[in-house]
């Protein structure tokens, strides 16, 4: 969270709305621990990361959908299995649970 504070501050000062995604659970091998945070503004700008770059693109889509009011806050899970080689997932074989929400608190 600390590493994204400055970006969030800058975005909010210039009138952007912000969503944050935090790793709240992991199973198996996963590059970032619970607490890893990524912030996304309504222009699609990004700060921080929640994996080794594997799922960030999908998280941006999720965050933008929430900011657009198309989705509610909640848990999003990304995993990977051998028969889903082209689905969005972690190449390291783990599963991560993210809580994605608007910064409205």
């Amino acid at each position: 969270m600390k590493e994204v504070l400055d970006d969030i501050e800058r975005w909010r000062t210039s009138g952007h709305r912000v969503a944050i995604a935090r790793v709240v659970g992991i199973e198996g091998s996963s590059p970032r621990d619970p607490g890893a945070t990524m912030a996304v503004n309504d222009a699609g700008e990004v700060a921080g990361s929640v994996s080794g770059g594997c799922v960030e693109g999908a998280v941006v889509q999720e965050a933008l959908a929430i900011l657009a009011g198309e989705k509610q806050r909640g848990i999003v899970t990304f995993g990977y299995s051998d028969d889903e080689a082209f689905a969005v997932g972690l190449t390291c074989g783990g599963t991560i649970h993210l809580f994605v929400e608007p910064l409205d608190w």
Binding site: M1, K2, L5, I8, E9, R22, V24, G74, I75, F99
Partner: peptide
């Protein structure tokens, strides 16, 4: 939360997920 983190004060954030 932001003010505490900037001031280096320890604290915990609990969120219903």
């Amino acid at each position: 939360l932001r003010d505490a983190l900037r001031a280096g004060e320890p604290l915990a954030l609990a969120t219903v997920v």
